[in-house]
Design a protein around this nucleic acid. Structure first.
Lengths: 86, 86
DNA sequence: GCGTCCAAGATCGTTTGGATCTCGCCCCTG
DNA sequence: CAGGGGCGAGATCCAAACGATCTTGGACGC
């Protein structure tokens, strides 16, 4: 698991759409698809339900989203604590 | 910033010694040195005081250690929440 | 000077990302 | 109600970036 994967995951969860999430993240769509898949492989759980219109969070995905956001917020706080101090 | 960097950082903080931390992490010593340095560069702060005997946390490093541990614990919780559910 | 640290440089393998295409599904039209 | 167009995700191939190792260099204490 990597922080990029968490960022990608949260973006897709918000947009419910890999293409839009990718544009927002300034990366290509397949890169996002791939990292989401790798994340699911590692966690051995389906984070999204794939629909013809996009992606919707699965129940497990919704739970994981809370964890992911908390982690990313922790990272922001850690950075701020350091940059604020220099 | 990456999760590996946080793991390396915490290990060095615990061991107060890059070599021992590297052995514990099952990677070579320069890899740990390098990631610590990159982390310091990104945060623009010195996390350790280098001594002939090893590395000791700087005040900023001690503060960052708390953040890092909290983040890594969040990651563990997130993984457990998913692996427990499958 | 010697042993013990951490840091730096070169090289290499792995990972990540981008571009292109392929497939599936829905809808719309003829 | 079949066929085609449009939209979205996934697979493939290749290039670029990243991280790790090995080896060497430099600093400090004994």
């Amino acid at each position: 698991m990597s922080l990029s994967q968490l960022e990608y995951f949260v973006a897709v969860a918000e947009e419910q759409h890999v293409g839009r999430a990718a544009r927002k993240l300034h990366v290509a769509q397949p890169a996002v698809s791939r990292q989401i898949r790798l994340l699911e492989d590692e966690l051995q759980v389906s984070l999204f339900r794939r629909t013809p219109k996009g992606m919707r969070l699965s129940p497990a995905g919704a739970l994981f989203r809370d964890h992911a956001q908390r982690i990313l917020e922790g990272v922001r706080e850690a950075k701020d604590a350091m940059l604020g101090r220099r």
